[in-house]
Nucleic acid binder design. Structure first.
Lengths: 251, 251
DNA sequence: TGCAGCACATTGGTCTGACCATTGAGGTGG
DNA sequence: CCACCTCAATGGTCAGACCAATGTGCTGCA
């Protein structure tokens, strides 16, 4: 749409390191690109501390204000982390760090896109659950069971939501792919489900969720991937149906 | 005049809309949250123009510098868009806008996580391709074919990469789920594949890619979802195998 | 009358320099 | 030897100035 073109590959420099960045529009954008590239090139390692804002600004040739904007940008993107009084550090660059922003979509989006989002989850979570069934360990299974039981022991909607989320998180975490887990996590963010949850307080819904979770847990305990996949698929399909029926509320 | 008296929780406003945000650490973080919430609450609609930086800063009670950091943050997150000399606008909040940052992960990540990323793609793209086969239109199919032929007509690695990306983009776009398309797009970002591509220039590889693409195209033309799914799965599995074999290069 | 083109107010982009608040290391005294 | 204090380093915030792109309205020529 608006994204002009991209970086033309015109500069045939020897690229001493990674301090070169094409003429982006703003100096801040350039700084973002430069730091990003330093990380991509491995010059900055996870956990490593960067120079101070003042030094960085001097090195890259811009003012501290603009450098701060660049740092802020990389901070919200989960690449950097600033500690007041201490310094600026590269995050661990784990899936959790980098995909934290993924949940934003679930917070802001409306209407049709909510369905699209749920559809993606329907593609991922059943498979993730099946993967979990194939490799889940006893402690992981116990964790899943813990949240299953906690959810059966309470009727407080708030706590139910918390345990519901924790249950799914525990299941997907057992799939052994942290990146996948972080993505699914973003698709099921608290905000997202809270939005869905409004008016979903009918007892029948909760009972159904509990049954679904129990079925998923049984499949995991039996190490039966296909049963797990099916159970997860049914669970999500129910949410999807419900959302489709109540779509008008967000139009 | 910022140290005045500290923000006591004394203001018992009727909370006119969504201008309340808990005591985040920094004023900038608070501003980010406030603007985000205004959008989530529907007070700011897609495409709408915001007040000027100066006015916004005054309204939310912080300096222009800090407000600029907040705006920069929401800009890189794909929520806002600043136009020099014109103003600040809410983006269309489309999947493309909000998931642009998703590609960052492919740029920065290394080692094991590359495999995790590719595994997620393996979960999504075959299904997306199958969906496309079930509903692709003639113009969309023509677009796919165009990139298929373009890729067979050139041997320039750069152009091959471009057409390779465009081919996949066209296929996934035909699946009818823009959110899914944006996610897969992020998983296959140019940077990512460029990194993979280094040393992947052996003619045999290109020939294989061309055959895979042709197979996918045939399945789409035949409107055969399962054949399409299989063709896409094979294609990705090949990349995955190659990466697994050459992992050491990024360790 | 119509429209090309200039002038200028608006608004984002950048810089400078100051001060505040937190952190952590090094020194001090019990 | 350790608790405590002091203080330099460093991120967080603010203020005000100027630059640069934009868009609008007025001017003046055809």
């Amino acid at each position: 749409m608006y994204s002009a073109e991209g970086d033309g590959g015109m500069d045939g420099l020897a690229t001493p390191a990674a301090e070169v960045a094409p003429g982006r529009r703003t100096v801040t954008q350039r700084a973002i690109e430069q730091i990003k590239q330093m990380i991509a090139a491995g010059e900055l390692r996870p956990g490593q501390r960067l120079p101070t804002e003042r030094d960085l600004a001097a090195q890259l040739g811009l003012s501290r204000s603009s450098m701060r904007e660049a740092i802020r940008a990389l901070t919200v993107l989960g690449v950097l982390q600033a500690r007041h009084g201490s310094g600026i550090y590269v995050t661990e660059l784990g899936a959790g760090d980098l995909l934290e922003t993924f949940g934003l979509m679930a917070e802001v989006v409306r209407g049709e896109q909510l369905l699209e989002l749920l559809q993606v989850r329907r593609l991922l979570e059943p498979t993730a659950t099946a993967m979990a069934a194939a490799r889940i360990t006893e402690p992981e299974l116990a964790e899943v069971e813990r949240h299953l039981l906690a959810m059966e022991d309470t009727d407080d909607p708030e706590e139910l939501l918390t345990e519901d989320l924790a249950f799914h998180r525990a299941v997907v975490a057992a799939a052994g792919n942290p990146t996948l887990a972080a993505i699914v996590e973003g698709l099921s963010s608290r905000t997202f489900r809270a939005r869905l949850g409004r008016g979903r307080q009918e007892p029948g819904v909760f009972a159904q969720v509990r049954k679904d979770h129990a079925r998923i847990h049984r499949a995991l305990a039996a190490r039966d991937p296909e049963a797990a996949r099916a159970a997860a698929a049914v669970h999500i399909a129910e949410v999807e149906d419900w959302l489709r029926a109540h779509m008008d509320d967000w139009r």
